[in-house]
Design a protein around this nucleic acid. Sequence first.
DNA 1: TCATCATTCAATGTATTGATTGATTGATGG
DNA 2: CCATCAATCAATCAATACATTGAATGATGA
Lengths: 225, 225
Amino acid sequence: MKSAGVHHPIFDEIADLARTLGHGHRLVLLRHIADGELAVEQLTQLSGIALANTSQHLQHLKRAGLVQTRRDGKRVLYRLADGPIENVLAALRSLANHRREQIRELINDTMSRPDRLENISREELVRRMRADEIVLLDVRPQEEYAAGHLPGAINIPVGELEERLAELPREKVIVAYCRGVQCVLSADALAILRTRGRASRRFEGGFPEWLASSLDVDGMNYESG
Amino acid sequence: MKSAGVHHPIFDEIADLARTLGHGHRLVLLRHIADGELAVEQLTQLSGIALANTSQHLQHLKRAGLVQTRRDGKRVLYRLADGPIENVLAALRSLANHRREQIRELINDTMSRPDRLENISREELVRRMRADEIVLLDVRPQEEYAAGHLPGAINIPVGELEERLAELPREKVIVAYCRGVQCVLSADALAILRTRGRASRRFEGGFPEWLASSLDVDGMNYESG
DNA sequence: TCATCATTCAATGTATTGATTGATTGATGG
DNA sequence: CCATCAATCAATCAATACATTGAATGATGA
């Protein structure tokens, strides 16, 4: 049942508590109980869990000291027990949300890399720039931008992106670029832009690739062509 | 793996997190990791958990997003992940302590007061046993029970009490006894019985006192009048 | 006391989890 | 490249947890 290690038994007690919270049904039941005393059948209705199953989970919670009961006629009413139970639930919820956020960002990162949904080719970039469908965003530091950049690009260093978001037109797709394939600035920029609901893509090659494949850096060749 | 209820999936995510914390070994590992980056083998030494087992629990923690790793030469170093992890641990610890306190108070009550609410005198014991109002519970180990016990007593060692609770009739008051005044077995038993809502008292003298004041140990003298 | 309702218990089958063992991978230094 | 060390993987077995079913309990009101 429990690990018989050399450690303080409090760890096993905490583990028991945590395991009691380790089932969706019990969390749902706790949530409802936290709103006020409820009978078993009400809980089955609120939760959609089968009656006997609900009862068993409730007993589990009771054994763990998380809920208490009293009888009212034929009914047995469940209520939260004393103690910082809601603190634990809140802490867990907060941690779960944090984790959610991180996973979402991870997905954004991985998608933004080789994926053509995230990445935009040089050809498509030129074509759509001509059609005025996109706005080019240079997220490198100001000095690097000043030293040379893609024609038509706006410069907002990635660190300032959050507060200067308003400078980007909402009706166009934003294409971010930075120093090249191994540079993560534009990936970071995408993560920010997407959490703000902006349609955005990445020119993975960055300024170096552009430079390598075109001599017409300052001439805005796609605007005039 | 997960309950497919009608409820918000966040409940299952929280449940997964809680289950990850629901093992003493993982809590011990987390505790050590919280103090700083550690390699797997160091953790096995600190925790006393077998190597492969440690590794598996660490992977579990990693899957759950509670720890992160980096390689340093041959070693893999584990560290706490971002997020309010320590909050959760603190909240759990606090709740466990709260629960502990309550149980301890229960035990203290029974021990500090030779209270007639908790303790039952030999006279009352005999009288109510005759009236069939109570059931006698011997919570000592089986061998000691076999070597002699109070007439009519049921033997359930305190360690087995939780799971064998069903053997005790609900309609009678349970009177637990053990080795005597300085023995805490019956006090522990009372704590268990009362958290389960069983009416229960303690025959503080235990078997020794009974033996000292009666020669009729096996003759069920109070049943025969 | 009997019928009824709400809840719990008991029993069963199935799925998950955890510990252990031995093999495998990955990085290092000779 | 090989031997070595750290860590992980893979496979197995035992233990536990869960859902479901049908029976038992306990309180109520006729």
